[in-house]
Simulated scan of single mutants.
Amino acid sequence: MPRPSVPLLSRDQIAAAALAQIDETGTLTLPKLATTLNVSVSSIYHHFAGGREAVIEGIRGLLSRDFEGPFDETAGWRAYTEEWARRYRATMARHPGVVPLLTAQTVTAPETLASYEALADVLSRAGFADEDLLHAVSVLDCFILGSALDAAAPMDVWADSGNPESALSAAIAATRSQPGDRSQRSFEIGLNSLLAGLAQLVH
């Protein structure tokens, strides 16, 4: 019997099914993934020789395509970073369950490394020194991923004590009365503050 002209399984299909499993269950197991795809576990290893960690990197690469360019590199480092951060956060906020898995291992997905490389290049040309640049990227990464998790948090993150003299209760009441998404507003405030602080590193 001749081989099919189109492969029965691809890396993208595996990564997409793995992401769906994480969205549903918060975890990833290769036996369950194989069952979902109606293949053997060895078929997954054929495409991802590194097993579970390699599949997670495949997911990282798949998600990176959601927030990749084109970006306007002529708009200045701050405008570029704002757009990069917003796209990155929006993508991860749709899949908060994958964030703990991604942060538990080294980034090796080529698509993701290319995205970080482009950001690093913009920051470097803007005047960020080598000894500061990786820290700047790390701070951005931590903030964005934390905000993505916050997007999946309950609307009321803090319980209202009802104490009329409580500053926290007053803040909770004021926030409830504001239109729009609380997490998105928090993200924009944090991003503006973070970029203002990072601007001090420009030489």
Rank of each mutant, 00 (worst) to 15 (best):
G26Q: 08
E53P: 06
F187Q: 02
D181T: 09
G127A: 13
L123W: 09
L119D: 02
A174V: 05
D23E: 13
N163M: 02
N163Q: 03
S10A: 07
V157E: 07
P164I: 06
R185P: 12
L9I: 07
G76N: 06
H135K: 12
P70M: 11
A79N: 04
A114T: 07
G51N: 07
D181F: 06
S169V: 00
V41I: 03
G197F: 14
L102T: 07
V137F: 12
T27E: 15
V39Q: 01
I22H: 01
A109Y: 07
D23R: 10
V6H: 13
A151L: 01
E188Q: 14
A17N: 09
P7N: 11
A159D: 11
A20F: 08
D23K: 13
F187K: 04
W158V: 00
A104F: 02
R65E: 14
A79Q: 07
L198C: 12
F143L: 15
H203W: 08
T103V: 13
D130Q: 11
S177K: 12
L133N: 03
G50L: 04
S64A: 15
T74K: 08
S43D: 01
A151K: 02
R60Q: 01
D72V: 04
P164F: 08
E82I: 11
E117A: 15
V39P: 00
L168M: 09
K32G: 11
P31L: 13
R89F: 01
L30R: 04
K32D: 14
A85K: 05
A114N: 04
A171I: 00
S177I: 02
L62M: 12
L8G: 11
Q184G: 04
T74D: 12
A93H: 03
L191Q: 09
R87T: 10
A136R: 07
S64K: 05
Q105G: 14
E57T: 05
L133Q: 04
L8S: 09
R89Q: 09
I44N: 00
G197R: 14
R182L: 02
L119P: 02
T81A: 09
D156M: 07
L28T: 12
R185D: 06
R87N: 06
